[in-house]
């Protein structure tokens, strides 16, 4: 029992399940899943689909944070990626052509990869602090995206491109499957190869790792490339969802939500040990919370406050120090004799 209780995914999962239960109790249709034309629908399915962009960005962020870094430019990269893809599709003779869309997506992702490589270059080769290095692109990226779209919101009507965000494959939303593929690939690469442990070593003690012969620079550089690339894919999904490249709205604040997801998943911002499964749970918590706000009919003016309150509660519940503190307090109160009635209050811990 203690093993389960102490597992680092215990509290994040408790938070997620609690959110789902609250929703289900408030409105039972929340957990209903309909099958229509062999495709699944329902609030839970929507959460899975809508979580895809954040999922991709948060996965990349996990790797970057594991190296002691941070990537603030992911939202801007999303904007650039969407702008590149839609500009290509818009300029093509046949926007509905699958080949066109495929080329547009590949180019957009490659551009994102280059942007990630730029971040990685600044951090690992030039030695600029990650927060500053990625801030450059965070601020400049949207300008680049606007430049690409010529200052307009490029809209397209392309069947294959819309498929990315709203299509279905194997009865599940295609966007969700993209997220799953990213999770699987990343987990396999990190754990089946030695990349995971080397990344952790670099994140915990960069100098010791370098002296041990680890290619710290390449590992850190690689992390930003992965983050940029995944953000590019996220940008494609976002743009597909609204069928437009909106440089000012794409991925706004997503870097902060991604960091939040990583932290909720139990990965420390100090770098080192990371958990991809934790990040996945963290993303689902955030997305479920987002839906909860809509679902419970919280007015849009109040929703940030509501969101903030829930996040604070989740973070406090997860705080090991707080739990230890309460445990110590309980023990102390107990040792002073069971007669002290106040001990009941502390038991909540």
């Amino acid at each position: 029992m203690t093993a389960i209780y102490r597992h680092r995914l215990f509290w994040p999962i408790v938070a997620l399940v609690t959110l789902i239960v609250i929703n289900a109790v408030a409105r039972p249709q929340f957990i209903k899943i309909r099958v229509q034309d062999g495709e699944l629908y329902g609030p839970l399915i929507s959460i899975l689909r809508d979580s895809a962009p954040l999922m991709l960005v948060a996965l990349g962020m996990t790797i970057v944070i594991a190296t002691r870094g941070i990537d603030l430019s992911v939202g801007a990269i999303m904007a650039v990626s969407g702008a590149v893809a839609l500009t290509i599709i818009d300029g093509a003779e046949d926007p509905g052509n699958v080949g066109t869309v495929l080329i547009a997506c590949i180019v957009a992702v490659l551009v994102s990869l280059v942007l990630g490589a730029w971040n990685g270059f600044l951090v690992s080769v030039v030695g600029i602090q990650p927060i500053i290095a990625t801030l450059v692109l965070m601020l400049a990226g949207r300008g680049v995206a606007l430049l690409i779209t010529g200052g307009f919101i490029t809209t397209v009507n392309s069947e294959p491109y819309s498929f990315i965000a709203s299509g279905y494959l194997f009865a599940l939303p295609f966007a969700f499957l993209i997220g799953v593929v990213a999770i699987v690939i990343l987990s396999l690469v990190e754990r089946r190869t030695a990349l995971g442990v080397l990344t952790e070593a670099v994140g915990i003690n960069p100098e010791a790792s370098r002296l041990a012969g680890v290619r710290s620079r390449s590992i850190i550089w690689g992390a930003y490339i992965v983050s940029g690339t995944l953000a590019g894919v996220a940008g494609l999904i976002y743009a597909s969802n609204i069928k437009a490249a909106d440089a000012n709205a794409a991925g706004v604040f997503i870097e902060l939500y991604a960091i939040l997801a990583v932290v909720l998943g139990g990965t420390s911002l100090n770098g080192g040990k990371f958990s991809i499964a934790g990040t996945v749970v963290g993303v689902l918590i955030i997305q479920t919370l987002d839906s909860t706000i809509l679902f419970l009919g919280v007015s849009s003016a109040q929703s940030p406050v509501f969101f903030a309150i829930v996040v604070v509660i989740v973070v406090i519940v997860q705080s090991a120090r707080l739990r230890d503190g309460l445990a110590a307090l309980t023990a102390r109160v107990r040792s002073r004799g069971a007669g002290v009635q106040d001990s009941d209050k502390v038991e909540v811990a």
Binding site: A194, V197, E200, N205, A208, A212, G272
Partner: peptide, 20 residues
């Protein structure tokens, strides 16, 4: 500062050199 990677296990620390 330059030797052990404190938050990794004994095994991971020993293997780090050959793995690198």
């Amino acid at each position: 500062e330059e030797g052990v990677v404190a938050d990794l296990t004994v095994a991971e620390n020993i293997v780090l050199g050959i793995q690198a």
